[in-house]
């Protein structure tokens, strides 16, 4: 299994963190402690796996961040969304989920697509309309259970 790589940069008031690989029991976020800025953003785009132990490590870490800190989550893949829908505390109250991926399916060409969504485009746990990246079908279907998949948005 690929261990977690943490890339980070601090620019002005923001600490940008890119997480790559697996978030599991071996994940250690302490290198991020003490880097606190006004805003911390986490990019989950390259996370390939997350398990319940990893989530525990994550929550432990998030709890340590200063309360005044703005936390922003970007590009959460489906596996992250599925896991965090089951866990309380992954998102700290007041934090922002800027964007995430959601599964869609084109019944015209059979394409399965992970569509990048901005959180503010999801209303009432309903999947926003999307186009097929393959055939241009303008109304592809959401390929999970909406009420469940978007439940994390109610947690913030």
């Amino acid at each position: 299994m690929k261990r977690l790589t943490i890339n980070k940069q601090i620019l002005q008031d923001e600490l940008s963190v890119e997480l790559i690989g697996c978030i599991d029991e071996d994940s250690d976020f302490k290198e991020l402690a003490g880097l606190g800025q006004e805003t911390i953003s986490f990019d989950f785009d390259k996370i390939s796996m997350i398990n319940s132990c990893g989530i525990r490590e994550w929550i432990k870490f998030i709890d340590l961040l200063p309360a005044r800190c703005n936390i922003v989550y970007k590009n959460c893949p489906q596996i992250i969304i599925e896991q965090i829908n089951m866990v309380h505390g992954f998102f700290r109250e007041g934090s922002v989920i800027e964007s995430f991926y959601a599964p869609y399916y084109c019944d015209k060409c059979g394409k399965e697509a992970k569509v990048h969504l901005k959180s503010d485009t999801v209303k009432n746990r309903k999947a926003p309309k999307s186009d097929c990246p393959n055939c241009g079908n303008e109304n592809i279907e959401f390929d999970a259970i909406e009420g469940q998949y978007f439940s994390f948005l109610g947690k913030i």
């Binding site: 599925e82 599964p103 399916y105 399965e112 279907e141 390929d143 999970a144 259970i145 469940q148």
Partner: peptide, 13 residues
């Protein structure tokens, strides 16, 4: 159930 779809990595479809 809902979780079966996640567990088996299969969309409900």
């Amino acid at each position: 159930n809902h979780h079966a779809s996640i567990f088996f990595k299969m969309p409900p479809r």
